[in-house]
Amino acid sequence: MTTSGRLAMLALADARFPGGGHVHSGGLEEATHRGVVTRPEELREFLFGRLHGTGELAAVFAAAATHSAAGGAGRQYWLRFDAELDARTPSPAQRDASRAQGRGTARAGRVAWPSSALDELLAATARPHHATVLGVLLGGSGNGTPRDAAAVAAYLALSGSASAAVRLLGLDPFAANAAVTELGPELDRVAERAADTVGDDPADLPAPSAPALDLLAEAHQRHHREEVRLFAS
């Protein structure tokens, strides 16, 4: 990998990347409203669930997208890919949150790392899933491996929720940051497993899930119509 490749990976994982991630809490806001997460210890547990549910799914599809983008996948492939990720995301609210971040990441990424692979993906769907865009940005520009993309996708599943916990609960930012970094070895294993599945047909990719996160996402959206919520998810 080139030096610019390392930078692309770091920039995509950076909370300052302007792709719209800062308005998503990944279910953390709903969890705080229900009193499920109030302390750093509980945040740690919540993040463990995020990593093995949403995070692992995103890692699998980000890795696969990197591989396919580098291999010159076309529109028909991306449509099937998109449908398979939809099928593995049962909550409409989560699908919407993923597509909102995918669109935002594509908007910012198109300026930074334009590629014909990204054009091909956006021709298939204007609002692709977040994980797909991460993979296509890295793979399509030759700036990253499937494992890199998987690690970024898994990390973003954690960092957004941890940052939301600091903003909503006033948690000690050092404790919140440590809750993320403690999952380092676990995150490596998730990224490695994800990278092992690239090349499989999209229909055969793994389907990890976390039903509690699906339910929190749905409840968050329902409650938003009744009272104020600060985050989009």
Binding site: G20, H22, H24, A164, L230
Partner: peptide, 14 residues
Amino acid sequence: GACPHTAIRDDITA
């Protein structure tokens, strides 16, 4: 996301 200045300045996606 509880950061009004971020939404109009640093990350204008939303």
